[in-house]
Amino acid sequence: MNPALHLAHATSDDTTRLARHVNAAYRGDTARQGWTTESDLLDGQRIDEAGVADMLALPGAAMLLALNDKGELLGSFHAQVKGSVVYLGMLAVTPTLQTQGVGKFLLEAAENYGRQHGCTVSKMTVISVRAELIAYYERRGYHLTGATEPFPTDPRYGIPKQPLVLLVLEKALG
């Protein structure tokens, strides 16, 4: 892992750069430079500035940022505490930096965020056809619960190119 990573919490001043960062990590030609692209699954954007602002305003929520020594945004991850569960979502790492420990750094930070707020379970959803991403989380202690959720139909989160469903993964936090 890159020892120069620093953790920060996003504020409302970060909405523009976060929307740009997340969209570059998930969609389009830029996203194809990494292994976690959704470009073949969805058209359109992943999120807009209003969506980022909405996520930042959720009760118990934090958008965790991985920054380098220059303050450049390398990755982000949303965490929201709901009772004893921390819900994680929208892990976004600069495509050219994927496989260099930024995602692992943010996953550990998000789980710690949950622990600090008394959570005993970490929960997330992953698009069912993303086998490589599911395997990534399984290597980090997550397991498929057997539960599914419908993929959002709001086009501001993307337009599916095929039918999609979300699989629920969980991990006990110790």
Rank of each mutant, 00 (worst) to 15 (best):
Q162H: 06
P152W: 02
P152G: 05
V85M: 01
G44K: 07
G114H: 05
A79P: 08
L5G: 13
T30G: 09
I47C: 04
G146Q: 05
R139M: 05
K70C: 05
A57I: 10
L73K: 02
H143N: 02
G158L: 01
L18D: 06
T99M: 05
L56V: 07
D29R: 10
A31T: 02
G60A: 05
T125P: 00
K70Q: 07
E108L: 08
Y113T: 06
G28P: 04
A25D: 09
D154H: 05
F77R: 00
V86Q: 04
R139P: 01
V86E: 13
D69I: 02
I159M: 09
Q98W: 11
L64C: 04
T37Y: 14
G51F: 00
E138C: 11
A92I: 00
Q80R: 12
V81D: 03
G71F: 03
L64T: 08
L106H: 02
A19L: 05
L169Y: 09
V93D: 00
G114P: 08
G101W: 06
E108T: 10
D29S: 05
I134V: 11
D29N: 10
G28N: 01
Q80N: 12
A62D: 13
D154Y: 11
K161R: 04
P3I: 01
T30F: 09
Q162M: 06
A4Q: 15
E49T: 08
A172M: 11
P150Q: 08
L42E: 11
G83H: 01
L73H: 03
T11G: 07
A109C: 13
S128M: 14
A135E: 10
G146Y: 03
L167R: 14
L173G: 12
R139S: 07
L173M: 13
V102M: 02
Q98D: 14
A4S: 15
V168H: 12
L144T: 09
E149V: 13
H143K: 13
A4D: 12
Y113N: 07
S122D: 04
S39I: 05
S84F: 05
Q80C: 13
N23H: 04
T37A: 15
P95E: 05
L74E: 14
V52W: 01
A92G: 02
V52F: 01
A31E: 00
L73I: 00
S122F: 04
R32S: 06
